[in-house]
Nucleic acid binder design. Sequence first.
DNA 1: GTTATTTTTGAATAGTGATTCATTAATAAT
DNA 2: ATTATTAATGAATCACTATTCAAAAATAAC
Lengths: 194, 194
Amino acid sequence: MRVKEGNKEADILRAAIKVFAEHGFHTAKIFKIAEEANVATGSIYLYYKNKDAILATIFEQLWESFANEIIVLHGRTDITPVEKLDFLIDFIFDTFSSEPHLAVVFVNEQQNATKLYGKSFEEYDKFLQFGEKIIDDGKNAGFFNPNIDVKVLRFFLLGGVKNLLDQWAKDNKTFSLSLLRQNVKQILKRGVLI
Amino acid sequence: MRVKEGNKEADILRAAIKVFAEHGFHTAKIFKIAEEANVATGSIYLYYKNKDAILATIFEQLWESFANEIIVLHGRTDITPVEKLDFLIDFIFDTFSSEPHLAVVFVNEQQNATKLYGKSFEEYDKFLQFGEKIIDDGKNAGFFNPNIDVKVLRFFLLGGVKNLLDQWAKDNKTFSLSLLRQNVKQILKRGVLI
DNA sequence: GTTATTTTTGAATAGTGATTCATTAATAAT
DNA sequence: ATTATTAATGAATCACTATTCAAAAATAAC
Protein backbone atom coordinates (compact mmCIF):
# COMPACT_ATOMS: atom_id res chain seq x y z
CA MET A 1 0.00 0.00 0.00
CA ARG A 2 1.21 3.45 -0.78
CA VAL A 3 1.28 6.10 1.94
CA LYS A 4 0.97 9.88 1.66
CA GLU A 5 4.18 11.82 1.92
CA GLY A 6 4.44 15.43 2.98
CA ASN A 7 1.27 17.44 3.38
CA LYS A 8 -0.13 18.17 -0.03
CA GLU A 9 -3.38 19.51 1.39
CA ALA A 10 -1.50 22.26 3.20
CA ASP A 11 0.84 22.85 0.26
CA ILE A 12 -2.11 23.39 -2.02
CA LEU A 13 -3.77 25.81 0.39
CA ARG A 14 -0.59 27.81 0.76
CA ALA A 15 -0.13 27.89 -3.00
CA ALA A 16 -3.73 28.91 -3.54
CA ILE A 17 -3.41 31.83 -1.14
CA LYS A 18 -0.43 33.05 -3.08
CA VAL A 19 -2.01 32.65 -6.51
CA PHE A 20 -5.36 34.10 -5.43
CA ALA A 21 -3.51 37.08 -3.99
CA GLU A 22 -1.55 37.64 -7.17
CA HIS A 23 -4.31 37.15 -9.71
CA GLY A 24 -7.62 37.31 -7.89
CA PHE A 25 -9.87 34.31 -7.40
CA HIS A 26 -11.53 34.20 -10.80
CA THR A 27 -8.46 34.74 -12.94
CA ALA A 28 -6.35 32.40 -10.82
CA LYS A 29 -5.74 29.16 -12.72
CA ILE A 30 -5.92 25.77 -11.04
CA PHE A 31 -2.95 24.79 -13.16
CA LYS A 32 -0.93 27.63 -11.63
CA ILE A 33 -1.87 26.62 -8.10
CA ALA A 34 -0.82 23.05 -8.84
CA GLU A 35 2.50 24.26 -10.21
CA GLU A 36 3.09 26.43 -7.17
CA ALA A 37 2.29 23.51 -4.87
CA ASN A 38 4.43 21.06 -6.84
CA VAL A 39 1.57 18.70 -7.56
CA ALA A 40 -0.28 17.71 -10.71
CA THR A 41 -3.42 19.56 -11.68
CA GLY A 42 -5.61 16.60 -10.93
CA SER A 43 -4.20 16.14 -7.46
CA ILE A 44 -5.91 19.26 -6.28
CA TYR A 45 -9.21 17.47 -6.65
CA LEU A 46 -8.08 14.71 -4.33
CA TYR A 47 -7.94 17.23 -1.52
CA TYR A 48 -10.56 19.80 -2.43
CA LYS A 49 -13.91 19.33 -4.08
CA ASN A 50 -13.36 22.24 -6.43
CA LYS A 51 -11.94 25.74 -6.74
CA ASP A 52 -14.67 27.26 -4.59
CA ALA A 53 -13.90 24.82 -1.79
CA ILE A 54 -10.32 26.02 -1.64
CA LEU A 55 -11.41 29.61 -1.12
CA ALA A 56 -14.00 28.51 1.42
CA THR A 57 -11.34 26.67 3.39
CA ILE A 58 -9.10 29.73 3.47
CA PHE A 59 -11.87 31.85 4.97
CA GLU A 60 -13.09 29.16 7.32
CA GLN A 61 -9.67 28.82 8.88
CA LEU A 62 -9.15 32.55 9.07
CA TRP A 63 -12.42 33.40 10.72
CA GLU A 64 -12.09 30.47 13.05
CA SER A 65 -8.77 31.79 14.25
CA PHE A 66 -10.15 35.31 14.64
CA ALA A 67 -13.26 34.10 16.45
CA ASN A 68 -11.22 32.01 18.88
CA GLU A 69 -9.00 34.94 19.69
CA ILE A 70 -11.80 37.41 20.27
CA ILE A 71 -13.69 34.97 22.48
CA VAL A 72 -10.64 34.52 24.67
CA LEU A 73 -10.12 38.27 24.83
CA HIS A 74 -13.75 38.89 25.72
CA GLY A 75 -13.50 36.46 28.62
CA ARG A 76 -10.45 38.02 30.20
CA THR A 77 -11.01 39.96 33.41
CA ASP A 78 -7.48 41.22 33.91
CA ILE A 79 -7.65 43.87 31.19
CA THR A 80 -10.04 46.71 30.30
CA PRO A 81 -12.20 46.78 27.18
CA VAL A 82 -9.83 49.40 25.81
CA GLU A 83 -6.94 47.01 26.13
CA LYS A 84 -9.01 44.25 24.60
CA LEU A 85 -9.47 46.37 21.49
CA ASP A 86 -5.74 47.06 21.52
CA PHE A 87 -4.91 43.40 21.64
CA LEU A 88 -7.41 42.60 18.96
CA ILE A 89 -5.83 45.10 16.62
CA ASP A 90 -2.46 43.59 17.46
CA PHE A 91 -3.71 40.12 16.69
CA ILE A 92 -5.10 41.12 13.32
CA PHE A 93 -1.94 42.95 12.38
CA ASP A 94 0.23 40.06 13.52
CA THR A 95 -1.74 37.54 11.54
CA PHE A 96 -1.54 39.43 8.31
CA SER A 97 1.96 40.76 8.63
CA SER A 98 3.25 37.21 8.81
CA GLU A 99 1.16 36.28 5.77
CA PRO A 100 0.81 39.22 3.41
CA HIS A 101 -0.78 37.13 0.67
CA LEU A 102 -3.49 36.16 3.07
CA ALA A 103 -4.15 39.83 3.76
CA VAL A 104 -4.72 40.48 0.08
CA VAL A 105 -7.02 37.51 -0.34
CA PHE A 106 -8.92 38.46 2.79
CA VAL A 107 -9.58 41.95 1.51
CA ASN A 108 -10.41 41.16 -2.08
CA GLU A 109 -12.20 37.86 -2.05
CA GLN A 110 -14.65 38.27 0.78
CA GLN A 111 -17.46 38.77 -1.68
CA ASN A 112 -16.66 35.57 -3.53
CA ALA A 113 -16.26 33.71 -0.28
CA THR A 114 -19.56 34.97 1.05
CA LYS A 115 -21.38 33.16 -1.72
CA LEU A 116 -20.16 29.82 -0.45
CA TYR A 117 -21.99 28.22 2.42
CA GLY A 118 -20.54 26.58 5.47
CA LYS A 119 -18.73 27.08 8.67
CA SER A 120 -17.22 30.39 7.66
CA PHE A 121 -20.46 32.23 8.31
CA GLU A 122 -20.79 30.90 11.81
CA GLU A 123 -17.29 31.89 12.80
CA TYR A 124 -17.57 35.26 11.15
CA ASP A 125 -20.81 35.95 12.94
CA LYS A 126 -19.22 34.90 16.18
CA PHE A 127 -16.36 37.28 15.59
CA LEU A 128 -18.69 40.21 14.98
CA GLN A 129 -20.88 39.25 17.89
CA PHE A 130 -18.07 39.17 20.43
CA GLY A 131 -16.55 42.33 18.99
CA GLU A 132 -19.87 43.96 19.69
CA LYS A 133 -19.88 42.63 23.22
CA ILE A 134 -16.47 44.08 23.97
CA ILE A 135 -17.57 47.46 22.76
CA ASP A 136 -20.83 47.30 24.72
CA ASP A 137 -18.91 46.34 27.84
CA GLY A 138 -16.66 49.31 27.20
CA LYS A 139 -19.64 51.61 26.98
CA ASN A 140 -21.22 50.27 30.13
CA ALA A 141 -17.98 50.57 32.05
CA GLY A 142 -17.70 54.20 30.98
CA PHE A 143 -14.71 53.82 28.71
CA PHE A 144 -16.35 54.37 25.36
CA ASN A 145 -18.55 57.16 24.10
CA PRO A 146 -22.13 55.80 24.26
CA ASN A 147 -23.17 57.89 21.26
CA ILE A 148 -21.11 55.83 18.90
CA ASP A 149 -23.07 53.07 17.25
CA VAL A 150 -21.50 49.71 17.84
CA LYS A 151 -22.11 48.50 14.28
CA VAL A 152 -20.55 51.58 12.83
CA LEU A 153 -17.45 51.20 14.93
CA ARG A 154 -17.19 47.51 14.16
CA PHE A 155 -17.41 47.87 10.38
CA PHE A 156 -15.47 51.09 10.19
CA LEU A 157 -12.59 49.66 12.18
CA LEU A 158 -12.57 46.38 10.29
CA GLY A 159 -12.76 48.11 6.93
CA GLY A 160 -10.06 50.61 7.79
CA VAL A 161 -7.66 47.97 9.02
CA LYS A 162 -8.35 45.75 6.02
CA ASN A 163 -7.67 48.52 3.55
CA LEU A 164 -4.47 49.51 5.30
CA LEU A 165 -3.18 45.97 5.25
CA ASP A 166 -4.09 45.57 1.63
CA GLN A 167 -2.19 48.68 0.66
CA TRP A 168 0.71 47.60 2.79
CA ALA A 169 0.85 44.17 1.16
CA LYS A 170 0.55 45.56 -2.35
CA ASP A 171 3.11 48.27 -1.64
CA ASN A 172 5.64 45.51 -1.00
CA LYS A 173 5.64 46.25 2.69
CA THR A 174 7.59 49.45 2.30
CA PHE A 175 6.11 51.21 5.27
CA SER A 176 6.38 50.08 8.85
CA LEU A 177 3.55 47.99 10.19
CA SER A 178 4.22 48.91 13.78
CA LEU A 179 3.87 52.61 12.96
CA LEU A 180 0.71 51.69 11.15
CA ARG A 181 -0.87 49.92 14.06
CA GLN A 182 0.15 52.64 16.50
CA ASN A 183 -1.53 55.18 14.30
CA VAL A 184 -4.69 53.16 14.02
CA LYS A 185 -4.94 52.78 17.77
CA GLN A 186 -4.37 56.47 18.25
CA ILE A 187 -6.92 57.56 15.66
CA LEU A 188 -9.39 55.18 17.15
CA LYS A 189 -8.92 56.31 20.74
CA ARG A 190 -8.12 59.97 20.46
CA GLY A 191 -9.12 60.99 16.96
CA VAL A 192 -7.01 63.23 14.83
CA LEU A 193 -7.59 66.61 16.45
CA ILE A 194 -5.11 68.17 18.80
CA MET B 1 -30.99 56.89 -42.37
CA ARG B 2 -31.72 55.49 -38.96
CA VAL B 3 -31.12 57.57 -35.86
CA LYS B 4 -30.27 56.50 -32.30
CA GLU B 5 -33.12 56.60 -29.85
CA GLY B 6 -32.70 56.95 -26.11
CA ASN B 7 -29.27 56.64 -24.56
CA LYS B 8 -28.25 53.02 -24.74
CA GLU B 9 -24.72 53.75 -23.64
CA ALA B 10 -25.97 55.11 -20.32
CA ASP B 11 -28.60 52.39 -20.01
CA ILE B 12 -25.93 49.74 -20.36
CA LEU B 13 -23.69 51.38 -17.79
CA ARG B 14 -26.52 51.63 -15.30
CA ALA B 15 -27.47 48.01 -15.91
CA ALA B 16 -23.88 46.88 -15.56
CA ILE B 17 -23.51 48.60 -12.20
CA LYS B 18 -26.57 46.78 -10.98
CA VAL B 19 -25.53 43.37 -12.29
CA PHE B 20 -21.92 43.75 -11.17
CA ALA B 21 -23.16 44.67 -7.71
CA GLU B 22 -25.46 41.69 -7.53
CA HIS B 23 -23.17 39.03 -8.94
CA GLY B 24 -19.63 40.39 -8.90
CA PHE B 25 -17.72 41.28 -12.05
CA HIS B 26 -16.59 37.82 -13.09
CA THR B 27 -19.84 35.98 -12.55
CA ALA B 28 -21.91 38.76 -14.07
CA LYS B 29 -23.15 37.70 -17.49
CA ILE B 30 -23.16 40.04 -20.47
CA PHE B 31 -26.50 38.55 -21.38
CA LYS B 32 -27.92 39.63 -18.03
CA ILE B 33 -26.62 43.16 -18.44
CA ALA B 34 -28.20 43.33 -21.86
CA GLU B 35 -31.51 42.11 -20.49
CA GLU B 36 -31.40 44.65 -17.69
CA ALA B 37 -30.64 47.42 -20.16
CA ASN B 38 -33.33 46.29 -22.62
CA VAL B 39 -30.94 45.80 -25.48
CA ALA B 40 -29.67 42.77 -27.37
CA THR B 41 -26.49 41.08 -26.21
CA GLY B 42 -24.60 42.20 -29.26
CA SER B 43 -25.55 45.84 -28.80
CA ILE B 44 -23.32 46.10 -25.77
CA TYR B 45 -20.33 45.76 -28.08
CA LEU B 46 -21.45 48.73 -30.11
CA TYR B 47 -20.93 50.94 -27.09
CA TYR B 48 -18.14 49.20 -25.16
CA LYS B 49 -15.14 47.35 -26.48
CA ASN B 50 -15.63 44.50 -24.03
CA LYS B 51 -16.65 43.60 -20.49
CA ASP B 52 -13.49 45.04 -18.99
CA ALA B 53 -14.13 48.35 -20.67
CA ILE B 54 -17.50 48.63 -18.94
CA LEU B 55 -15.91 48.24 -15.54
CA ALA B 56 -13.15 50.64 -16.46
CA THR B 57 -15.71 53.26 -17.44
CA ILE B 58 -17.51 52.92 -14.13
CA PHE B 59 -14.34 53.59 -12.18
CA GLU B 60 -13.13 56.32 -14.49
CA GLN B 61 -16.32 58.28 -13.99
CA LEU B 62 -16.35 57.71 -10.26
CA TRP B 63 -12.79 58.74 -9.59
CA GLU B 64 -13.14 61.69 -11.90
CA SER B 65 -16.07 62.92 -9.88
CA PHE B 66 -14.23 62.38 -6.59
CA ALA B 67 -11.06 64.03 -7.85
CA ASN B 68 -12.97 67.07 -9.08
CA GLU B 69 -14.69 67.47 -5.74
CA ILE B 70 -11.56 67.18 -3.66
CA ILE B 71 -9.68 69.64 -5.84
CA VAL B 72 -12.40 72.22 -5.39
CA LEU B 73 -12.46 71.58 -1.63
CA HIS B 74 -8.71 71.88 -1.39
CA GLY B 75 -8.81 75.25 -3.11
CA ARG B 76 -11.40 76.80 -0.82
CA THR B 77 -10.15 79.43 1.61
CA ASP B 78 -13.39 80.04 3.47
CA ILE B 79 -13.31 76.78 5.43
CA THR B 80 -10.77 75.01 7.66
CA PRO B 81 -9.08 71.72 6.77
CA VAL B 82 -11.30 70.08 9.37
CA GLU B 83 -14.37 71.27 7.54
CA LYS B 84 -12.88 70.16 4.26
CA LEU B 85 -12.62 66.63 5.60
CA ASP B 86 -16.19 66.90 6.82
CA PHE B 87 -17.43 67.97 3.43
CA LEU B 88 -15.44 65.25 1.72
CA ILE B 89 -17.05 62.60 3.90
CA ASP B 90 -20.43 64.12 3.11
CA PHE B 91 -19.71 64.02 -0.59
CA ILE B 92 -18.70 60.36 -0.52
CA PHE B 93 -21.74 59.41 1.53
CA ASP B 94 -24.04 61.40 -0.72
CA THR B 95 -22.67 59.82 -3.85
CA PHE B 96 -23.11 56.29 -2.66
CA SER B 97 -26.32 56.71 -0.77
CA SER B 98 -28.00 57.81 -3.97
CA GLU B 99 -26.49 54.83 -5.80
CA PRO B 100 -26.13 51.84 -3.48
CA HIS B 101 -25.21 49.49 -6.32
CA LEU B 102 -22.32 51.73 -7.16
CA ALA B 103 -21.11 51.50 -3.58
CA VAL B 104 -21.00 47.73 -3.77
CA VAL B 105 -19.15 47.72 -7.08
CA PHE B 106 -16.74 50.33 -5.81
CA VAL B 107 -15.84 48.24 -2.78
CA ASN B 108 -15.63 44.86 -4.39
CA GLU B 109 -14.27 45.42 -7.86
CA GLN B 110 -11.42 47.80 -7.25
CA GLN B 111 -8.94 44.98 -7.66
CA ASN B 112 -10.38 43.99 -11.02
CA ALA B 113 -10.53 47.59 -12.10
CA THR B 114 -6.95 48.22 -11.10
CA LYS B 115 -5.76 45.73 -13.68
CA LEU B 116 -7.19 47.84 -16.48
CA TYR B 117 -5.15 50.76 -17.72
CA GLY B 118 -6.30 54.22 -18.46
CA LYS B 119 -7.57 57.42 -17.07
CA SER B 120 -8.83 55.91 -13.84
CA PHE B 121 -5.36 55.74 -12.38
CA GLU B 122 -4.70 59.39 -13.01
CA GLU B 123 -7.87 60.53 -11.33
CA TYR B 124 -7.45 58.13 -8.44
CA ASP B 125 -3.92 59.36 -7.87
CA LYS B 126 -5.14 62.93 -8.01
CA PHE B 127 -7.76 62.14 -5.41
CA LEU B 128 -5.22 60.63 -3.01
CA GLN B 129 -2.76 63.42 -3.67
CA PHE B 130 -5.18 66.21 -2.84
CA GLY B 131 -6.47 64.30 0.16
CA GLU B 132 -2.93 64.22 1.39
CA LYS B 133 -2.58 67.95 0.82
CA ILE B 134 -5.65 68.75 2.87
CA ILE B 135 -4.33 66.68 5.75
CA ASP B 136 -0.88 68.25 5.51
CA ASP B 137 -2.43 71.70 5.50
CA GLY B 138 -4.37 70.70 8.58
CA LYS B 139 -1.22 69.61 10.33
CA ASN B 140 0.64 72.78 9.43
CA ALA B 141 -2.23 74.95 10.59
CA GLY B 142 -2.23 73.14 13.92
CA PHE B 143 -5.54 71.37 13.54
CA PHE B 144 -4.36 67.80 13.14
CA ASN B 145 -2.06 65.70 15.26
CA PRO B 146 1.30 65.74 13.46
CA ASN B 147 2.17 62.26 14.70
CA ILE B 148 -0.43 60.69 12.51
CA ASP B 149 0.93 59.47 9.23
CA VAL B 150 -0.93 60.96 6.35
CA LYS B 151 -0.97 57.72 4.34
CA VAL B 152 -2.35 55.81 7.28
CA LEU B 153 -5.15 58.26 7.78
CA ARG B 154 -5.94 58.38 4.10
CA PHE B 155 -6.24 54.62 3.64
CA PHE B 156 -7.82 53.95 7.01
CA LEU B 157 -10.52 56.52 6.43
CA LEU B 158 -11.18 55.42 2.87
CA GLY B 159 -11.28 51.75 3.82
CA GLY B 160 -13.52 52.35 6.81
CA VAL B 161 -16.01 54.40 4.85
CA LYS B 162 -16.02 51.91 1.98
CA ASN B 163 -16.70 48.98 4.25
CA LEU B 164 -19.48 50.81 6.05
CA LEU B 165 -21.19 51.71 2.81
CA ASP B 166 -20.85 48.19 1.52
CA GLN B 167 -22.49 46.77 4.63
CA TRP B 168 -25.14 49.39 4.45
CA ALA B 169 -25.94 48.60 0.82
CA LYS B 170 -25.97 44.85 1.39
CA ASP B 171 -28.04 45.21 4.53
CA ASN B 172 -30.79 46.70 2.38
CA LYS B 173 -30.18 50.11 3.86
CA THR B 174 -31.76 49.27 7.20
CA PHE B 175 -29.67 51.61 9.27
CA SER B 176 -29.57 55.34 8.92
CA LEU B 177 -26.86 56.80 6.75
CA SER B 178 -26.89 60.15 8.47
CA LEU B 179 -26.23 58.51 11.82
CA LEU B 180 -23.48 56.59 10.13
CA ARG B 181 -21.72 59.62 8.79
CA GLN B 182 -22.07 61.52 12.04
CA ASN B 183 -20.41 58.63 13.81
CA VAL B 184 -17.58 58.43 11.33
CA LYS B 185 -16.87 62.12 11.69
CA GLN B 186 -16.92 61.84 15.44
CA ILE B 187 -14.64 58.80 15.60
CA LEU B 188 -12.28 60.49 13.24
CA LYS B 189 -12.11 63.73 15.14
CA ARG B 190 -12.49 62.75 18.75
CA GLY B 191 -11.88 59.03 18.85
CA VAL B 192 -14.01 56.72 20.89
CA LEU B 193 -12.83 57.44 24.40
CA ILE B 194 -14.71 59.67 26.78
C1' DG C 1 -42.49 54.11 -52.38
C1' DT C 2 -37.83 53.24 -53.04
C1' DT C 3 -33.15 53.52 -51.81
C1' DA C 4 -29.32 54.45 -48.80
C1' DT C 5 -27.51 54.51 -44.46
C1' DT C 6 -27.14 53.44 -39.78
C1' DT C 7 -28.68 50.80 -35.76
C1' DT C 8 -29.91 46.68 -33.65
C1' DT C 9 -30.46 41.90 -33.26
C1' DG C 10 -29.37 37.18 -31.50
C1' DA C 11 -27.81 32.76 -33.07
C1' DA C 12 -23.29 30.79 -34.10
C1' DT C 13 -18.51 30.70 -32.92
C1' DA C 14 -14.50 30.12 -30.55
C1' DG C 15 -11.47 30.28 -26.68
C1' DT C 16 -10.82 29.12 -22.17
C1' DG C 17 -9.92 26.55 -18.23
C1' DA C 18 -12.27 23.68 -14.48
C1' DT C 19 -12.95 19.03 -13.81
C1' DT C 20 -12.68 14.04 -14.87
C1' DC C 21 -10.74 9.60 -15.26
C1' DA C 22 -7.99 5.98 -17.33
C1' DT C 23 -3.35 5.15 -16.50
C1' DT C 24 0.94 4.98 -13.93
C1' DA C 25 3.73 5.08 -9.71
C1' DA C 26 4.73 4.10 -5.17
C1' DT C 27 4.67 1.61 -1.09
C1' DA C 28 2.97 -2.19 2.23
C1' DA C 29 1.91 -6.77 3.11
C1' DT C 30 2.89 -11.46 2.48
C1' DA D 1 9.33 -11.17 -5.78
C1' DT D 2 4.59 -10.67 -6.25
C1' DT D 3 0.27 -8.76 -5.30
C1' DA D 4 -2.92 -5.45 -3.38
C1' DT D 5 -4.01 -1.02 -2.37
C1' DT D 6 -3.81 3.75 -2.38
C1' DA D 7 -1.67 8.13 -4.28
C1' DA D 8 -0.66 10.86 -8.00
C1' DT D 9 -0.57 12.15 -12.80
C1' DG D 10 -1.90 15.02 -16.85
C1' DA D 11 -4.10 14.68 -21.30
C1' DA D 12 -8.85 14.68 -22.82
C1' DT D 13 -13.37 16.26 -22.01
C1' DC D 14 -16.92 19.30 -21.45
C1' DA D 15 -19.39 23.24 -20.02
C1' DC D 16 -19.63 27.85 -20.13
C1' DT D 17 -20.03 32.49 -21.94
C1' DA D 18 -17.64 36.55 -24.12
C1' DT D 19 -17.50 38.07 -28.55
C1' DT D 20 -18.55 38.18 -33.55
C1' DC D 21 -21.06 39.02 -37.64
C1' DA D 22 -24.50 38.13 -41.21
C1' DA D 23 -29.06 39.40 -41.41
C1' DA D 24 -33.02 42.34 -40.19
C1' DA D 25 -35.15 46.60 -38.84
C1' DA D 26 -35.67 51.36 -38.52
C1' DT D 27 -35.49 55.82 -40.21
C1' DA D 28 -34.09 59.69 -43.45
C1' DA D 29 -33.73 61.54 -47.89
C1' DC D 30 -35.54 61.96 -52.24
